[in-house]
């Protein structure tokens, strides 16, 4: 088994790790970095429980090699602190068992990084990337709407969606 030293930029820190080229990002995050927020679910790219953000886009870390992420900015749920989407998930009770929650939050956070005036079809399209076996979908969608309103309320007036200058 050949191992190689790589440096990954995770949650604002450079982490030098010794990995196999065949290691998935999910395995490296969980087993080597101790970042167990990204969850192994299907490990097949279907359920989204392992979603992390790489360069501001959501990725399923079970279908990405860790070595592919070198030179990119990785954010896991552990790197997300006091964000509107986290508070909204808690306020809306947007979880039951909680296993899928980190993946949903990372996906929703990435969506809100892109735009804070997202329509319903777009929310539905993004949410279809993740599966919640407890079927909390309505509450999750509510949490996204709540986070979106919070973020829009905090924007300067001329940057708000539908403001005369936008």
């Amino acid at each position: 088994m050949t191992k190689h030293e790589v440096t990954l930029h995770i949650n604002g820190e450079d982490r030098t790790l010794v990995i196999r080229h065949a290691d998935t990002l999910l395995d490296v995050l969980r087993l080597q970095c101790g970042l167990t927020g990204a969850k192994p679910g299907c490990e097949n790219g279907d359920c989204g429980a392992c979603t992390v953000i790489v360069n501001q886009l959501p990725y399923k870390s079970c279908i990405m090699l860790a070595i592919e992420a070198t030179g990119h900015t990785i954010m896991t749920i552990e790197g997300l602190k006091h964000s509107p989407i986290q508070r909204a998930f808690a306020k809306c009770y947007a979880f039951q068992c909680g296993y899928c929650t980190p993946g949903f939050i990372m996906n929703a956070h990435a969506m809100l990084l892109h735009d804070t005036s997202i329509d319903e079809p777009t929310i539905q399209e993004w949410l279809e990337s993740n599966i919640c076996r407890c079927t909390s979908y309505e509450e999750i969608a509510s949490a996204i709407r709540m986070a979106m309103s919070t973020m829009n309320a905090n924007l300067p007036d001329n940057s708000k969606p539908n403001s005369p200058s936008t």
Partner: peptide, 9 residues
């Protein structure tokens, strides 16, 4: 094809 997140890859 696939889903929104998978299409990023």
């Amino acid at each position: 094809i696939a889903d929104r997140t998978a299409r990023n890859k």
